[in-house]
Amino acid sequence: MISILKNFKFWFVFTPYFWLVAFFFIPLAIIMKISLSVSEWGMPPYKDILTTDEVTGNFIINITSGNYAFIFSDFFYLQSYLNSLSLAFTSTLICLIIGYPIAFYVAKSKPKTRNLLLILLIIPFWTSFLLRVYAWKVLLQGNGILNMILMKFGIITEPLSLLHNHYAVILGVVYTYLPFMILPLYGYLVKFDLRFIDAAHDLGSRNINTFFKVILPLSLPGIIAGCMLVFIPVVGEFVIPELLGGSDKLYFGKIIWNEFFVNRDWPVASALAMSGILFLIIPIVIFQISYSKYNFKNE
């Protein structure tokens, strides 16, 4: 045992291993546990899974699927989840459509220009996320700059209410998550050999066909990585709807937040989080598979 503890490799593996088990895996297990417990008045506001009967001293197991039954029976929760999914889907798609050509052209620029463009892409990424969302709040105000421009050109006469609706949320999400789409795409496209395009042209393929039959399939792993990096976090996004959204749509992140901080119903908040993980497990698995494939290729 002592020889194992002196082993360098042992510490290399097990220090992060234990840390992640303690502070990532066990907390998830606790959410799981609380999502199955019975809510009650007090602190903590739920009954422990295992209690002893005060009279007989016997163990009592307090497990309920009621929290799950509750959130799945109430359309309010399901609707918020669907809202988040549709937000994530729409904004991922828009990010892909905007991000792909940018990533492609940056990757295909001359090395010197490429470095400059890449840094220009990364600068907003390193700027505070919160401040970037806030910037749109400023822009979209009733007396904000966008309305001013539109009115000056006579396109509108009255200021539009651009803020506090789900379009503003989509805009905010696309804006803040665009780098997450562009960077993995760039990573693939920069390694992409331009001779493939020449070969496809040589074999008589037209531009459109070249794109769909050669470039797109070869950059597919980058597309998957980029889409997952946008889609999954956006499903749980809280800040952007809070700052830019209105009362027209409620989102998943906000619901968990409210359930926990406002209603103080920990079991329901946990059940929501757990079901969120369950719904996200498929995209997460896709992400991990494509990610590990990519790394194997590098070896």
Binding site: P16, Y17, L20, I31, G236, I256, G276, I284
Partner: peptide, 12 residues
């Protein structure tokens, strides 16, 4: 456990 935090929603 060492890659899932990458994509796990912050709120969870």
């Amino acid at each position: 456990i060492s890659t899932a935090p990458l994509v796990m929603p912050e709120i969870i």
